[in-house]
């Protein structure tokens, strides 16, 4: 089973000096946090905030690359979690054929947001159990931990 998720936002995680992309399902019952690096977070942040940079950033170029031959991103699926690493697949449609391409979630999400493609997560990777824990952890974050993206 897969569940559709929305990219809710980004947070800075001071304890790991990393960023967290927060995905939530539409009912807000499930939450999926994905830790990403700074430049990866920047790529997602620009798409979330609809910032148009003067020059194409890497994922804008990635989208142009697909647009050049009318290849469409149909969806992105966060498929697996193994040893603290999330895995994802990008589903493409090109000339009536479907292609599935392995990607890091940060790339998949940065591309999905630019392509208005839906994001799904395998139920097995959604952290149902630790969700309460995460809520508590989120509450403990100081306001200044949010919105610190400077890239």
């Amino acid at each position: 089973m897969i569940t559709q998720m929305q990219v809710k936002g980004l947070m800075f995680d001071p304890s790991n000096n990393a960023y967290i992309v927060v995905l939530r399902d539409d009912e807000h019952s499930d939450m999926l946090p994905i830790w990403v690096g700074k430049s990866e977070a920047g790529a997602i942040s620009m798409a979330l905030e609809n910032v148009t940079p003067p020059r194409p950033m890497t994922h804008d170029f990635m989208k142009s690359f697909l647009d050049a031959y009318n290849a469409k991103v149909i969806s992105v699926v966060i498929t697996d979690l193994s040893e603290h690493t999330y895995f994802s697949k990008i589903h493409l449609m090109y000339e009536d054929s479907e292609y599935t391409v392995d990607a890091r979630p940060s790339d998949a999400l940065a591309l999905a947001l630019r392509s208005n493609a839906p994001v799904f997560a395998n139920d097995s990777v959604i952290t149902k159990q630790s969700s309460d824990e995460l809520e508590q952890w989120l509450e403990n974050l100081k306001p200044e931990d949010f919105g610190k993206l400077d890239s």
């Binding site: 890497t58 994922h59 170029f61 990635m62 690359f65 290849a71 990008i90 391409v101 392995d102 790339d107």
Partner: peptide, 8 residues
């Protein structure tokens, strides 16, 4: 990211 573009 650029490995992904190559993969596409």
């Amino acid at each position: 990211s650029h490995d992904l573009i190559k993969s596409f």
